[in-house]
Design a protein around this nucleic acid. Structure first.
Lengths: 118, 118
DNA sequence: GACATATTTTCTACAATGTAGATTAAATAA
DNA sequence: TTATTTAATCTACATTGTAGAAAATATGTC
């Protein structure tokens, strides 16, 4: 293939959530985190479908939680971002950032690209 | 509706391109701009389909170019970003940015959110 | 142990967005 | 009128976004 594949906006966000939740990145935590930090409310189904797809693409890896949980309910599935996932994330960030930077430059050409003005 | 609709990643990018190209935002220009600034190569079809959808959603408005062009070929269709388009764009930016900011904070808690370290 | 309850994931289905190739339209040039 | 040029539209399909219902699997209770 000649061009890298791009990941969707929600995929980017979920990758970021998992990255930040570290050892506590599973379904409902991820969902709350996203709602809290980005004001984006997902249904359960929407969440898991996307997590599953990210795993299939190799951008996330999932492992089942310990069997000896001190609570009721099914075992949690913990996710972590793979190296490939990190790459995809930073690539997406870079692409969007370059466009925003050009815009900032156009609006205020007296500032340099670093964007630090204080 | 209870939650604002989100726009796709490519939609964001095209909105940004149109914003920056100002009075010269039409098909092939937009396409070159995107390829140049964000290293994202789109087919003709992919480009116009997305522009068309953005127009239908009211995030872009299009008008046909002047009939008295000094060249061969069909009339250009110029686009501009509507107020609604601007809003959608900044909303998307904000959501993603908040997630990235949390991450930066986690990686380097000694720095404040402004991110300026020089 | 059967049954309620709690917690979390999977299944099924459809809508929206991303993508490309071929075709059409509309202007000028020969 | 026939090329040539420039640009947009059409058609079709793949990928990503979204939600509601169902299933799985643990603990608590009688």
């Amino acid at each position: 293939m000649t061009q890298e594949k791009f990941i969707g906006e929600l995929e980017q966000m979920l990758l970021l959530c998992v990255l930040q939740l570290k050892d506590d990145a599973y379904g409902s935590q991820i969902r709350s985190f996203l709602a809290d930090k980005a004001q984006r409310d997902l249904s359960i189904g929407a969440l898991y479908t996307t997590l599953e797809r990210l795993e299939q693409k190799g951008l996330l890896s999932g492992r089942l939680g310990e069997a000896t949980a001190e609570r009721g309910g099914r075992a949690k599935k913990y996710y972590s971002v793979t190296g490939e996932g990190r790459q995809a994330l930073f690539r997406s960030k870079a692409a969007l950032e370059q466009l925003w930077q050009s815009l900032a430059l156009q609006l205020a050409p007296q500032f340099d690209q670093g964007g630090c003005t204080r």
